[in-house]
Design a protein around this nucleic acid. Sequence first.
DNA 1: GATTCGTGGGA
DNA 2: TTCCCAAGAAT
Length: 363
Amino acid sequence: MAGAKAGAETASGDSGRIVAALLAWYAQHRRDLPWRAPPGARADPYRVWLSEIMLQQTTVAAVIPYFHRFLDRWPDLGAFAAAPREEVLKEWAGLGYYARARNLHACAGALVARHGGEIPRQESQLRALPGIGPYTAAAIAAIAFDAQAVPVDGNIERVLARLFALQAPLPAAKREIAALARAFLPLSRPGDFAQGLMDLGAAVCTPKSPDCARCPLARHCRARELSIAGDLPRRAPRKARPTRRACAFWLECGGSVLLRQREDQGLLGAMMEVPTGAWVEDGGFADHPREAPLKAPWRRVEGLVRHTFTHFHLEIRLWRADLPPGARPGPPMRCRWVPVEELAGEALPSVMRKLAALAARSG
DNA sequence: GATTCGTGGGA
DNA sequence: TTCCCAAGAAT
């Protein structure tokens, strides 16, 4: 912690000027985002909560259309809390990290049960809710309620690592960076300070080629002084991604296709899938459809679906069978017949939509 | 502390 | 093509 101590001392000397410069920059350059209130106004806590969950490890550009669809359909927390989980998962499909959607639904229930259908303003109470970790609790407290909190996201980690020229690699340096962030407290406008740092990180202090010439904090920045801004923060090297292989089974009958709901936990948990066999690392493709969910005249579909998850690549070979309209079997466990025209509205993650697209070309 | 958990865009 | 990584949380 010697580094953090030295950094904090540096910050205390400059912190007032840094905060002022950042707030002035933010007043001029703040992004106009759909979950933000006009300058000076306080944002709707429901929108802040929803947007912060969506923005976890997800780009603003990817979130915006989802945020609009959620808000059109569920304009306030009361409406959202009444939504069945299945509908939440359908609206979330394609955004990724589906535990967020499951936790979002669970969190709404907890807000109704424990907080009278309101979003609490205390960081500690927020932190106890499903899907809300240290970052999100601080972000909601600061942005929605102007509470004395400093959320530390990837942007702020990067800005602070550069400001103080921290050489320690992430993620080990997270605690040290959080300590530096807290050295800016107390703040007059915690929400604007946090969002200012995030906007700065997104627009100026970017990961690869920071635009120091346009940075309001340049005169305070140790990394710029050392000409290493673009090299910070350092990160521990990543492990290589292995490849897993699997077969999927597209069974069509009378214009409907057989889908299956995945197990509630784990990868793509509770989402719908084209039934697949085992996903085997360093495996080959079976020559026979022995893992098919039903007996049918299976034939191989030409081509391959490739998809990359966070920690492995997946290659899927598709098998297809078409049954006569009158011969539709009862759906096996966790399965359901879905009209092909209604696939778009199903809770299908992106990898499964790729399979549907391949099947459509094979039909 | 290390792993697991998605997706799409850009260099 | 390949790699990086974006408003992290849960285990």
